[in-house]
Design a protein around this nucleic acid. Structure first.
Lengths: 351, 351
DNA sequence: GTTAGCACTCTAACCTATCGAGTGCTAATA
DNA sequence: TATTAGCACTCGATAGGTTAGAGTGCTAAC
């Protein structure tokens, strides 16, 4: 892969992303003077095609980047100056984060919306897992003889509650005792830790102290298990699905149906965001078939994690056609990601 | 509108709904022997067109029902035997409701899904307004010196809660007193009544008793106002939007985008369901332009209310192309509606 | 190694002819 | 007077053919 090939590939991709039509040798030679003739470029393009970086939609059309081509571009060719946002864009983002709410749930939703509006693609966000939330308060409130309301407040300001049925009656004193014990042991722990704790130590202790409570405890456990199930992999937000309909690559209803079906179930998307967030690097770009899901092979995804207290807790990203202006999108996603991190840094119920 | 014209219109609509293509005079004469020749039918069709019941997509094509035609069909021509569900369909519905959950939220969602699956259209449901829910329990739990957690449990089994900031400190005694008073006055009332109550009587009383509480009360009020705002017109469920893509009338991406944009905001749909539920009759059918929204002129909507304790509390319905088998869809919607009513009849948190 | 020239290929767009479905009209019929 | 057969006409859809243009690949010259 010599320098000139790189230049040609780079140029071709930029032009194709810009214009949306196969790029011919003449165009490359003319629009972006490389000082060589179309014929030379043709030869190089022929090589690039053999190498799998570009392809022809049909004989006697120009060339189009392949997934591999985009991949090479993203990994090796993009230049820092391509990654700059325009002044208005920059302004729009900072304005948004200056005025936005501190409340996490809304912050997530609005950030998602911001991304989808600015890119005209679909934006998605994986919320922090509950697991990582710290239990700040715990209350047990008796509803009647055999029903108990468990209230938990976590450090993200959410109130969780559930009605627990008591298998046997329980005295006010025992209840207060149980509450105090649970509070002492569990407050300040993350949900994940709470779960551990509950299954081991305290359970034993309580079991010794009072066998009736054992059952109440089992119910508490059940409650948390409920959460951890529905919590698996965090919850998803998706914004601006309809934006994709504006893209020329989705002008066929069957394609659209396939794609939307995938998005609707959101299991696939979730898995991808999860995979991305487990990578060591920050921003991850999936291109075309790397998304490994039928219906999304014409798409690319750019995601970046966001942090709370230095810990990776979620991801935010964008799904668009493979033919997307990667540098700009990457810059935007990263920018938004880092601002979500900053805003989310010190949040809570009591703000 | 003589008898024969009615017959012809009826036949034409049935055939068109079935086949999906403009119906000619020959087809009507042949497939459904009316004992007259195509020429006669042509004359009648010409009249029907003048009257606005049918139209030609282009000269020298067959005829297609107009919105007005469908309307006449729905109002005057449908026969009871057309409204029967097939055995399998009947089976499917009863099976579903035999096995379904008692929990309201899930019942709604699943009924919606059932409708969308069986019709292959989009199903929608307007949940009961909170307003109508009866307050069953009310608890005030102190979180710390200046925060209070208000917990309300309504008769549909939902737990509502909100953190209320106290402008000034309040003693445990006053709190208990306030709680007791509120419980005494508010429990057993609907949210709407609670709201009334709170703004008038009790507020006065409390104001006299203890001016500090006044502010806490104001906050409670605020909390309920929040609810009543977001509650305006009930919340919506929409299921199976993608089904519409299967319909041949939505094979154009621009149409789809327009339609989906309307569905996404769901304000329009909500308004329609609301309007429908205010009608005196049960089931309401909106046809084509009667939906009076751009992007939905190729659609029809069939909705029916459902009841809890004899009171109309919500609606459930289906949105499909104007070319839909009205009798069947109406029958299905009504059937599901009445079963939702029955299931929802005696529900609650303690089941 | 690079380039000009040229033949070749393939698509998209346009035109044309043809076919068939369905109509509307007219005149004959019961 | 209502019905019908017959017929000319319209229009959309389909298929085939032509053309224009873009772009290539190859070859031979620089």
């Amino acid at each position: 892969m010599d320098e000139r090939k790189k230049q040609i590939l780079h140029t071709l991709i930029r032009d194709y992303v810009d214009v949306g039509e196969p790029v011919g040798s003449r165009t490359i030679a003319k629009k972006y003077g490389l000082g060589v003739s179309p014929a030379t470029i043709r030869n190089e393009m022929s090589d690039l095609e053999e190498m799998g970086f570009i392809m022809q939609p049909h004989a006697s059309a120009g060339r189009v980047p392949s997934d591999k081509g985009y991949r090479y571009y993203v990994d090796n060719l993009m230049e820092p100056e391509e990654k700059l946002l325009s002044d208005e864009e920059q302004q729009q983002v900072t304005d948004f984060f200056r005025n936005c709410t501190e409340e996490m749930e809304q912050l997530f939703q609005q950030s998602c919306k911001l991304l989808s509006c600015m890119t005209n693609y679909t934006a998605m966000l994986m919320k922090p897992k509950l697991e990582a939330c710290v239990l700040e308060r715990l209350k047990l409130v008796r509803l009647n003889d055999n029903q108990l309301l468990a209230i938990m407040i976590t450090d993200d300001g959410k109130i969780h509650n559930k009605i627990v049925r008591l298998p046997a009656e329980i005295s006010d004193d025992s209840l207060a005792e149980a509450e105090a014990l649970l509070q002492e042991r569990l407050l300040g722990l993350s949900f994940a830790q709470v779960l551990d704790c509950l299954t081991s130590e305290i359970a034993h202790q309580l079991l010794q102290q009072q066998s009736r409570l054992q059952q109440a405890l089992a119910l508490m456990q059940q409650l948390l298990l409920d959460y951890s199930e529905e919590d698996a992999g965090g919850k998803m937000l998706i914004q601006g699905t309809l934006n994709l309909l504006k893209q020329p690559e989705f002008h066929d209803v069957d394609t659209v149906r396939e794609l939307f079906t995938v998005l609707e179930t959101d299991a696939v998307v979730k898995e991808l965001l999860l995979m991305a967030s487990q990578q060591r690097q920050g921003t991850v770009v999936y291109i075309g078939d790397e998304l490994s899901s039928r219906g999304m092979s014409a798409c690319s995804m750019v995601t970046t994690p966001f942090y709370v207290n230095g810990e990776k807790v979620g991801s935010i990203g964008v799904l668009g056609p493979t033919r997307m202006p990667y540098p700009k999108i990457i810059a935007l996603v990263e920018q938004v990601g880092s601002l979500v991190s900053r805003k989310g840094g010190g949040h809570g119920a009591d703000k």
